[in-house]
C-alpha cells in the first residue's frame, strides 16, 4: 500500500516539473500565477501521500499550514498589481 502512495506521489512530482513550463511560458502573469497555484495544491497532495506512506508525525501539519496559506501568494500578486501599496 505504501508503495502505491509513493508511486502516486512520484507521478505528482513529475507533473509538477512538467507544469513548470507554463510558469515560464506565461504569457500573462495570470497564467504563471495559476500554474503556481496548482503546484501548491499538488504539493499538499504529495504531503498527504507522504504522511500516509511514512506514518511520520507532523507531516499533516505541514500540509495544514500550506493549505491555510495557499491563497496568500495569489492575493499578494493581485493586490500588489491592483492595490499599489501606496504609503500612508
Amino acid at each position: 500500500m505504501s508503495q502505491l502512495f509513493l508511486g502516486v506521489a512520484l507521478l505528482l512530482v513529475l507533473l509538477l516539473v512538467g507544469g513548470l513550463a507554463r510558469v515560464l511560458q506565461g504569457p500573462t502573469p495570470h497564467d504563471r500565477l495559476l500554474a503556481a497555484q496548482l503546484f501548491g495544491t499538488t504539493a499538499i497532495a504529495i504531503l498527504l501521500l507522504l504522511a500516509e506512506s511514512s506514518g511520520a508525525a507532523g507531516v499533516l501539519d505541514v500540509a495544514l499550514v500550506l493549505s491555510l496559506l495557499a491563497m496568500v501568494s495569489v492575493v499578494a500578486f493581485i493586490s500588489c498589481s491592483r492595490g499599489r501599496g501606496a504609503p500612508e
Partner: peptide, 21 residues
Amino acid sequence: AKLVLIWILVLIASATSCYLI
C-alpha cells in the same frame, strides 16, 4: 479531521484565488 480540514481550506483558497485571477 485534519485531512478534511485541509481539503476545505484548499477549497476556500482555490475558489478565492480563481475568482481573483
